[in-house]
Design a protein around this nucleic acid. Structure first.
Lengths: 204, 204
DNA sequence: ATTATAACTTAACGGTGTTAAGTTTGATTT
DNA sequence: AAATCAAACTTAACACCGTTAAGTTATAAT
């Protein structure tokens, strides 16, 4: 009885197609400027069909955020493989994080900047535990722990340090994405400046 | 002929009342959740009347952002008056910036986080030059310049350093505001950790 | 062939920001 | 005092939005 399975596969196909179209639109036009009807037009189904596959518009976004985290996570892992030690890994990782955000500004925006998480957090639908977000941050934490272990940066509360480093990276990324008009110096200068500040700030 | 002046004063009164009501609503319920009709109900005028005083909803927000900057600017100035030297001023300023954001999360959100600036930047309505935003950032820049001058931090591109410091402060503030669910350590720990990282990172 | 069920659509609700056209109001001019 | 004119304000509408309830179609199981 492979019929039921085929059905499920087809259902999964449509679900994936909705995600693909939605991601493309979100990235191109921004979350707020994409309506359910616009997504529906693209997939050539009625708007309400989407609600058979996703709870609501935020639910679609959440799935895409998970994808974003997965992308970022993989890039971080690649860096680890090409690094001699934890400090180099951290240094390259900071640069890569900001550049990842600038390369995928809309991905970054919906995942880290858009004020959607507040609403999502309260609905018990989403669990941070086990999410790609948790894994990705966990990875940063482990790199920080490794730099402490190898003596590259001074000892301290690993969680506090990791979160502070994340905050600094996120700050630069989100400002560069969100405030294009501000007369920033070049992004290269800013990335270098931030990296040096973080690293020498944690050294001693 | 004081009549025309009285009229203008009354017109200015209504304008200010709209701003007051809108600010209160934005702060209480968030920009997105406040409609023009809701504002109109509160001031007991029809929704369209608002458009006689403001170009659109974003325009109202922009005026409020200017107020936010003015508040922040004043707090920074108070800190300067109670500081012995530029380094102390910078240190206290970082702490004050983050705390300001946490005390006025909606103000901070609409001013620094919400992705509204992109739209506003393109419309030539708003000029960064001469805005409170420019003055506030200019103030941070001058404090950084003073720390360099007094030899508290090492020399470098003042603009790059200022922007990096802003980025780091903004990163922590916006994460704390926007991701309440994330298992952060206490905000005090994070503020201390960030301040120390920035200061010792810039020292040498 | 009939029944049950899954997939999908139609139509609608109650909202949104914004605009064009019309009305009231009150001071100025004749 | 009556007519005029401009400013202030409102009504009604447009074209959207996210979402839901009810109805339809198509397919599989009996």
């Amino acid at each position: 009885m492979g019929l039921k399975e085929r059905r499920e596969r087809e259902k999964e196909n449509l679900r994936q197609e909705i995600l693909d179209v939605a991601r493309e639109l979100f990235v191109a036009e921004g979350f707020q400027n994409v309506s359910m009807r616009k997504i529906a037009d693209q997939i050539e189904y009625s708007p309400t069909t989407i609600y058979l596959y996703f709870k609501d518009k935020n639910d679609i976004l959440m799935q895409i955020c998970e994808e974003t985290f997965a992308l970022l996570y993989r890039r971080m892992q690649e860096i680890e493989q090409h690094s001699e030690n934890a400090l180099e890994c951290l240094s390259k990782g900071i640069k890569a994080y900001v550049e990842f955000g600038l390369e995928h500004p809309h991905h970054y925006e919906v995942t880290f900047i858009a004020p959607i998480w507040k609403d999502i957090d309260k609905s018990e639908e989403y669990k941070y535990e086990g999410s790609m977000g948790e894994r990705t941050f966990g990875y940063l934490r482990s790199v920080i722990a490794a730099t402490v272990a190898e003596g590259s940066i001074k000892k301290g509360d690993i969680d506090a340090i990791s979160q502070t480093v994340w905050a600094a990276m996120h700050g630069l990324t989100s400002l560069l994405i969100g405030h294009e008009d501000f007369p920033f110096v070049t992004k290269e200068k800013l990335i270098d400046c931030l990296t040096e500040m973080i690293l020498s700030g944690l050294k001693s």
